[in-house]
C-alpha cells in the first residue's frame, strides 16, 4: 500500500499501433489507480506519446471522480534514446519502488533491462508486446505476459463494451480462416511436390 504503479509505454511513437494499444490499456490502469487512490507514474519515450498519455491519465482521473488527484508529474517524458530511456526508467524503479510495473507497447533490447530491474525491486510485473523476439525476456522475468495479439485484445476486453468484445470474436474468426487457408495451401503445395499436380496449378491451367 502507498506504493505507486509504474506504466512504461514502450519505445515506438503514437503512429505505431502497439503504442495506441498501450495508451488504451493505460486509460483503464489509470482509472483503477485513481479509484484506489494510488499514484501512477507513466513514462514515455516520445514527445507525442507523452502529450497523448497526459490527456489519457488526466481524463481517467476525471472519470474516476478524482480530478484533483491528478498530477502533471505522473506522466513523464524520459528520452527518445533507447538506453537513455532504459536508464531513466530503471532509476525511477529503484528510487520510487513501485508496487506494480506495466510494460505495454513496442520494446527492443531494453525489455530485459526493465524486467530484471523491476524484479529486483520486488514489484509485480505485467508485460505486453507484439515484438516476438522480446517476448522470451518478458516471459522469463515478468509475472504475466500478454503475447502478441493479446496486447491488442486487452483494451477491448477491459472495456466490456459488447461491440469491442465482439471484435475479439471477429479476430478469432479471422485467425480460423487463416489457419484453414494455411492447411489447404500446405496440402496443395505438398501435392505439387509429390505428384507434380495441385489444385492451384489445375485452376491456373483452366483459367488461362
Amino acid at each position: 500500500m502507498g506504493k505507486p504503479v509504474l506504466y512504461v509505454t514502450g519505445l515506438a511513437d503514437v503512429d505505431d499501433i502497439q503504442t495506441l494499444a498501450a495508451l488504451s490499456i493505460l486509460s483503464h490502469v489509470a482509472k483503477k489507480t485513481a479509484e484506489y487512490d494510488t499514484s501512477i507514474l507513466a513514462t514515455t519515450s516520445r514527445a507525442v506519446t507523452f502529450s497523448a498519455a497526459q490527456e489519457v491519465v488526466r481524463d481517467a482521473f476525471t472519470i474516476a471522480g478524482r480530478p484533483d488527484s491528478f498530477s502533471v508529474e505522473s506522466v513523464r517524458y524520459i528520452s527518445d534514446d533507447q538506453f537513455g530511456y532504459a536508464a531513466g526508467v530503471d532509476g525511477m524503479m529503484v528510487r520510487e519502488q513501485p508496487a506494480a510495473n506495466f510494460y505495454m507497447g513496442k520494446f527492443y533490447a531494453e525489455s530485459l533491462i526493465f524486467a530484471e530491474t523491476g524484479y529486483a525491486t520486488g514489484a509485480i510485473q505485467i508485460a505486453g508486446t507484439a515484438q516476438a523476439n522480446q517476448l522470451p525476456f518478458f516471459v522469463a522475468a515478468c509475472d504475466y505476459t500478454l503475447i502478441g495479439e493479446e496486447l491488442f485484445a486487452a483494451s477491448a476486453y477491459l472495456s466490456g463494451d459488447p461491440l469491442q468484445v465482439g471484435s475479439l470474436r471477429g479476430q478469432d474468426v479471422g485467425k480460423a480462416i487463416v489457419m484453414v487457408v494455411l492447411v489447404l495451401a500446405s496440402f496443395d503445395a505438398t501435392l505439387q511436390v509429390l505428384f507434380d499436380w495441385s489444385f492451384t496449378s489445375y485452376l491456373g491451367a483452366l483459367l488461362s
Binding site: A130, A132, F152, G170
Partner: peptide, 8 residues
Amino acid sequence: SAIGLISV
C-alpha cells in the same frame, strides 16, 4: 499479431 493489428 497482424490480425490483431488489423482489428485494432
